[in-house]
Nucleic acid binder design. Sequence first.
DNA 1: CTGAAAGCGCTTACAG
DNA 2: CTGAAAGCGCTTACAG
Lengths: 345, 345
Amino acid sequence: MAATIKDVAKAAKVSVATVSRALNGHSSVSVEARKRILEAARKLRYVPHSAARSLITRRTQTIGVLLPDLHGEFFSELIRGIDQAARREGLHILVSSSHGDAKEAAAAIQTMSGRVDGLLIMSPHIDARLLKDTLPAGLPVVLMNTPVDDIGYDAIAIDNYWGAYAIVSHLIGRGYQSIALISGPERNHDAEERARGYQDALRERLPNVSPRVIAGNFSEDSGYRAGQRVLAMRERPDAIFAANDTMAIGCLFALTEAGIRVPQEMGIAGFDDIPIARFVTPPLTTVRVRIADFGQQALERLVAAFDPSLHVQTSVQTLRAELVVRSSCERPGSTSLRLAGRPSG
Amino acid sequence: MAATIKDVAKAAKVSVATVSRALNGHSSVSVEARKRILEAARKLRYVPHSAARSLITRRTQTIGVLLPDLHGEFFSELIRGIDQAARREGLHILVSSSHGDAKEAAAAIQTMSGRVDGLLIMSPHIDARLLKDTLPAGLPVVLMNTPVDDIGYDAIAIDNYWGAYAIVSHLIGRGYQSIALISGPERNHDAEERARGYQDALRERLPNVSPRVIAGNFSEDSGYRAGQRVLAMRERPDAIFAANDTMAIGCLFALTEAGIRVPQEMGIAGFDDIPIARFVTPPLTTVRVRIADFGQQALERLVAAFDPSLHVQTSVQTLRAELVVRSSCERPGSTSLRLAGRPSG
DNA sequence: CTGAAAGCGCTTACAG
DNA sequence: CTGAAAGCGCTTACAG
């Protein structure tokens, strides 16, 4: 049906070798031959068969992106950044998501790994050993926000710890004294790092106050329910740090519904700076992570790893986060103290 | 490096043909041979080379998804639905986005079409002729929300017209008399259909009121600016229908900032029912489209088209939308009138 | 039930 | 600058 390189060769009256060379831009083709070949290819609507090419070149021009989930703007932003960078590099992207556990993630890696030149992996579940057992030796990989930073994989991570530390410090600077955390899902690396930042900030800056953690799972709904639990407490906290914006907004909704005034009676802060964060009432103080940039950098790391001469050693790169101060935890009368983003390693 | 079918054959002491048959589940392989082969394959971590297989089977087990953009939750939901259905079918998905115009979309179709068994295309720009000129004959395609419904392509579309018609009718039923539209981007099919629904509802239900359209482009920011323009009008409308939720929320923000009470002084309605819509203050009345379902159905349509015996004729399928009534246009004292979703064709 | 062989559509030394 | 030929790793009639 579709034209092959043979058809083009016949039409241009040259060998398939010459067609291949002309189409791949090798210089050693005469001007007239090249012209005839290009003309014939155009006429026949010739498109090289990618599988045949891959078979011989051992390159697919495709990279795989393994994501734990696809809910929410975080992932569309991430894919957007990856896709943009990939297009610049002439690479296609194969997407796979919804891996509930390590086993599923490993299976997805298996089926992808034969079809791609490299893999971008975000998996809160997988560990280093499983990864090593699953990945074909020599396949370039960049781990995104995945808790495997010790053993020979390139990785890129959001500075969750610092972001959480900074925002809790900010709340304390604003005069809040009893700050509760709405946590993310258990065994989720991002969630754990944010919790750790919360704990450390509290311990260092308010040593006499003990942390209070309300379980959440990153969904709006869990934030809403957490808000209701706060309302039911005998001794309510005076501020809440939610481990992501989505929960912060759910919580805000619960509080507003109950007539609690934010930020006067209770401060709220989130994490991520999703687009909607600035549009809720009151606008949400949060930590911004440039997610599309994150995706883009991950892809560029991967591309760099394609060239072994450039890629001498694996390393973990951290992506700077920045505090975004809005009014959801600005008590009237408190003085302003703005923290800047820490330069990342 | 990686093991090939030859290595497995050698290890299991059979021919490559037998290995191929065993691994592909053909029945005509003796039990012992199958056992030895499976064992050898496992030991060698054999994974069939997908390019080699594709070359001979003419199937890639991959479908391409062409999207105009990747901003916002709409697209992550869409990809999620597609990805879920694809996984069930054992298909991989190749994603490509950010095609500013028809030419870019055509180029993306070109580079993808050699690597996929079928294509899901959402492109507000492309027209039927260009599509016909670009697509290899015989490649299964399903158009998603793309204004090419007349010439022999399968298509699936959101019922934008009806959704807009229904929500404007709802506003009128609530007693609003002067309803302005914040439109979507020009030459965008969804936007045009929603505008058409708005115009028709107004013409039929309030024949003496002329429509008022404020230009927007689906971004929060354009909604915000539209809100400011409304505030500056000499004769303000008493309700606003924004062509998507994102703009509705931007507009709401502008109004709230200016001290306008919603819904008492001005009603607002949106379109899409993005997750945040229920969390803003007041919660937004909107039209819900089950986006993940939409993606899933598109993929299933495509898979059906793989089997020519099942797939006799192309057709356009419309996805039901439903009105979601919240408080952003509930004036005190107005009576309730809830419209149900229309069954789709 | 099994194997030898052809062939899918390319690229790339090799020889001229 | 060009062509003949080998070979990438599979699958599948064909013959036994």
